[in-house]
Design a protein around this nucleic acid. Structure first.
Length: 890
DNA sequence: TAGGTCACG
DNA sequence: ACGTACGTGACCTAC
């Protein structure tokens, strides 16, 4: 019997599987079937089942290609890319799985999934029931009523946003019924619905808030002015038709009643079989599904191995030796963001059914020698989490970690470098493994941080070690499948130790020199502050953008060129334009510069100099940048000033750590453009580098069509900006902003450039196409970055992804190359028994300190190693320089 | 804690 | 038509 508490869940099958396909990284079963979209769909489904607890459910699919919508408009959904085969093959898998869930599936030739859902929702409503519509398509919002809510997936399919009529009103200022008017006006590129040209979401919403419906807009057209009116007038029929196309048809002749979609839960045994077939092992386990066949039963028993937590504190050291001999994973826990200062907490080693846990303070006890020796033994492989950090923490306890074999954090970074959550629990969730207690739940956070008593701590560390053990085979397999074995095992993994070595070494910084410079900066700041107060006629906090904005724009009445979310923009670009208007502006610009230098570079760096050694130890993060670059923290030594002379002085404080030694720096010349020449294969660009031409001058010659001797400084400057634009993923808008020229002018420059370098245009087109097809781009070393938004219907998101597709292979390959060079340099120094030390990496530059007797050798060796790091179709040139400090090594 | 700003490649 | 150049981290102010 039905009653008022009944709840229908109506799922838009095509929309969700499509979303899932592009949101979930590629995944194949052992037989080579792609399963990522089915997995994503299933995750979403389980979530909805759990949260909504439906009494009725169905999944609707589109049937065939033609629908009644094509009768009136043949181009409906035209221009769509063909469904990739990797997705097509997943439809049958999904349908089979839904059967196992006992969920009915509806489809009807001539109608789309949303029509079926609209019809069923109407039916439910008529019978006084409530319904939940689940889709990735905002068109569905037109179905929302007091009884029907719409869940739209976000972030792929992992989250949903709930829309009620109120929520739609709040967000868009319109009613659900007006969604079709919205579409009628703005159209929908992904369905090839035209709408009215020149009308986007914003304009459409404005029109609807004023006129209510498309019909009313058309009727009262004389109230609209200008270009907008012209556009609407000449596309009235398009608007009417678009609205019609966007309208969900709610009278689909279905031979079913609500009784046919009653859901009483799934049959565990059937679902278990289906899931194991798809190799969703952990999902099946999580749901506690039975009916495993013998082989998979053994396998799941294996991965669910129970382990006994053995605390050294209570059980003694016996047995540790055996566990170490066959250790499957080790976990070294520490507290604190900066690994050079982090406090050791404990170590857990897991093997078979035992996990031994040692509190960190016992690591120095005589009985722990077996553990210390194991950690230092390169023949004993360490599978762990964040080995880079572990190596630094252990080093401060006098332990020289060796045998770094596999790091789940580093591997996960290669599998998806854009994924934000690097925590162990985050990884477990990402790979659908059963999760553990979050660190925060165990330790608390901030001021409340407290390491719990022995037993509780031991359990947590053991759970983490076990988590690493469970995750390792999964990640190792995916690294291999994605063709990143060499990248991982020969580059990234060993590089983490090279980085740790540089960080432990540190760079000597002359604190007195910094202080002297700071005194001088302070003097200038005070003088300028006075000048600013005098000029304004009163005192205020110059460092507050809010107060500064009020002074400049409200009190002094300067023109407002740009606004931020919260008020006036006062950034350097704006200030530079305001300079001619008022003397105060120049002073403010200089004030900004000096206070930046003072707080970030004088005071900031002084705080980081270790009093015992006089050195600064940065920490390179290897798992942050989406392109494969390193980043530097505590402090950041990759953004020490150089462009302005005043700031460049800071570099004089970076000195050799031993008397008589020299700072030597070498940087790649135009590495990104050389990489572009290589991967695009453009003949002209290659030729330019083969002849070692000044690339910006060469670009100026081609773009402006002049001889070398006719290129003046301004032309070269503009050509340089064009080259930057090319590397960043060119857009005429960006270039016009940068050069302060018109968009037409910028467009002309770009067109000239592409005519001169047709291979580059070909590359840009191909890489975007490829990204659209595959969903990712790669570097020369097969580093991968997914770009799910490249197929997004939102212009901004899509354009951003397209520029990223152009830029990432370039920036990422450059990152690959310098990482290779660092490996080779490290080996070269060791092989030759040199005392010189590699200290810093700044994306295209390496900084060393060199004893006098090695200086001549290093001047040749470093650029040679860097040049030969990777063989390209153009030479890689590295330029070397040295001096008494980093300033002089330029 | 978020947003604005600015230092670098 | 839409409105940004690509990638980072640190500091300050205001919420």
């Amino acid at each position: 019997m039905s009653n008022q508490m009944d709840k229908l869940v109506l799922i838009d099958g095509n929309s969700i599987i499509f979303r899932a396909f592009y949101a979930i990284p590629p995944l194949t079963s052992s037989s080579g079937l792609h399963t990522n979209a089915v997995l994503g769909f299933t995750t979403m489904l389980l979530r909805v089942l759990e949260e909504e607890k439906p009494t009725h459910i169905l999944v609707a699919f589109d049937a065939g290609k033609m629908t009644f919508r094509h009768e009136g408009y043949a181009e409906y959904k035209g221009g769509r890319q063909k469904t990739p085969p990797e997705l097509s093959e997943q439809f049958p898998l999904l349908k089979e799985l839904l059967k196992a869930f006992s969920i009915p599936q509806f489809e009807l030739p001539g109608y789309e999934a949303d029509d079926i859902i609209g019809t069923m929702a109407k039916l439910a409503e008529e019978q006084g029931k409530s319904a939940i519509v689940v889709s990735g398509d905002k068109d569905m919002l037109q179905l929302a009523t007091d009884r029907v809510s719409v869940l739209i997936t976000r972030k792929g399919v992992s989250e949903v946003e709930r829309y009620t009529p109120e929520a739609i009103g709040e967000k868009y200022g319109i009613t659900p019924a007006q969604i079709i008017d919205l579409k009628g006006l703005m159209g929908d590129a992904s369905d090839n619905i035209p709408g009215v040209p020149g009308v986007g979401e914003k304009t459409a919403l404005k029109l609807l808030q004023e006129f209510g419906t498309v019909e009313n807009v058309l009727e009262k057209i004389e109230e609209i002015k200008g270009k907008l009116r012209e556009n609407i007038e000449s596309h009235m029929d398009d608007a009417r038709m678009s609205k019609k196309l966007a309208t969900i048809f709610r009278e689909v002749p279905l031979d079913y009643s609500l009784e046919d979609v009653v859901w009483k839960g799934y049959d565990s045994a059937a679902l278990g079989v289906a899931m194991r077939k798809l190799e969703f092992k952990t999902l099946a386990e999580r749901l506690n599904l039975g009916a495993a066949d013998e082989a998979t039963k053994a396998e799941s028993a294996e991965s669910a191995t129970r382990y006994e937590v053995v605390r050294v504190e209570t059980s003694g050291w016996a047995g540790l030796n055996e566990v170490l001999a066959e250790a499957e994973a080790v976990l070294v826990e520490s507290y604190g963001d900066n690994p050079h200062q982090a406090q050791g907490i404990g170590i857990a080693v897991v093997s078979g059914d035992k996990c031994h846990v040692v509190e960190y303070k016992l690591l120095s006890s005589p009985e722990a020698s077996v553990l210390r020796e194991w950690l230092e033994n390169g023949d004993k492989p360490k599978v762990s989490y964040d080995l880079h950090r572990v190596e630094l923490v252990l080093a401060r306890s006098g332990i020289n970690l060796k045998g770094q074999a596999f790091d789940v954090q580093l591997a996960a970074y290669l599998l998806d470098p854009t994924e934000a959550d690097p925590s162990l629990n985050g990884l477990l969730q990402r790979y659908k493994l059963s999760s553990i207690l979050p660190d925060e739940a165990v330790y608390g956070k901030g001021a409340k941080y407290l390491v719990p008593e022995g037993e509780q701590l031991a359990k947590h560390l053991a759970a983490k070690a076990d988590a690493v053990r469970r995750m390792k085979p999964l990640l190792a397999e995916q690294v291999e499948q994605l063709g990143m074995n060499r990248l991982y095992y020969e580059l990234e993994q060993p590089l983490s130790s090279v980085l740790a070595g540089m960080e432990k070494q540190g760079i000597a910084v002359n604190g007195d020199a910094l202080k002297d410079l700071g005194t001088e900066f302070q003097r200038r700041i005070e003088e300028i502050t006075k000048g600013i107060y005098e000029s304004a006629g009163f005192e205020f906090n110059i460092g507050s953008p809010k107060q500064l904005g009020e002074v400049l724009f409200d009190r002094l009445g300067l023109p407002v060129y740009k606004k931020t979310k919260t008020g006036y923009s006062t950034d350097a670009e704006v200030l530079e334009r305001l300079e001619p208007h008022h003397e105060i502006v120049r002073l403010i610009l200089h004030y900004r510069q000096l206070t930046k230098l003072q707080s970030t570079y004088i005071e900031g760096l002084l705080k980081e100099i270790r009093s015992d050694s006089g050195k600064i130890h940065t920490f390179y993060r290897q798992t942050i940048a989406a392109t494969g670059r390193l980043s530097s923290q505590f402090p950041n030594l990759q953004n020490i000033p150089i462009r302005m002379e005043e700031g460049r002085q800071i570099r004089k404080a970076f000195v050799p750590s031993e008397p008589g030694w020299t700072i030597l720096a070498a940087d790649y010349s135009q590495i990104e453009l050389r990489v572009l020449a290589h991967i695009s294969g453009d003949e002209g660009l290659k030729e330019a580098f083969l002849n070692d031409m000044d690339i910006h001058t060469k670009t100026a010659m081609d773009v402006f069509g002049v001889q070398a001797d006719q290129v003046d400084g301004n032309m070269r400057r503009q050509a340089k900006a064009v080259n930057f634009g090319i590397v960043y993923g060119i857009s005429s808008y960006g270039l016009s902003q940068n050069l302060d020229i018109s968009r037409d002018q910028a467009t002309a420059f770009i067109e000239q450039y592409f005519q001169a370098f047709p291979g580059v245009r070909r590359y840009m087109d191909t890489i975007v196409e490829q990204a659209k097809r595959d969903g990712y781009v790669t570097t020369l070393l097969e580093r991968r970055r997914y770009l799910p938004e490249i197929r997004h219907s939102n212009f901004n998101l899509r354009s951003f992804a397209e520029r990223t597709a152009m830029n990432t292979p370039i920036q990422g390959t450059a990152a690959d190359i310098i990482k290779l060079a660092m490996m080779r340099m490290n080996e070269a120094l060791l092989e030759r028994g040199l005392r010189s030390r590699m200290l810093l990496q700044v994306h295209d530059e390496l900084v060393f300190e060199v004893p006098e007797e090695e200086l001549e050798l290093m001047r040749k060796l470093v650029p040679e190693v860097m040049s030969n790091a990777l063989k390209l179709d153009v030479p890689l040139l590295a330029e070397v320089s040295d001096g008494n400090n980093w300033y002089e090594a330029k």
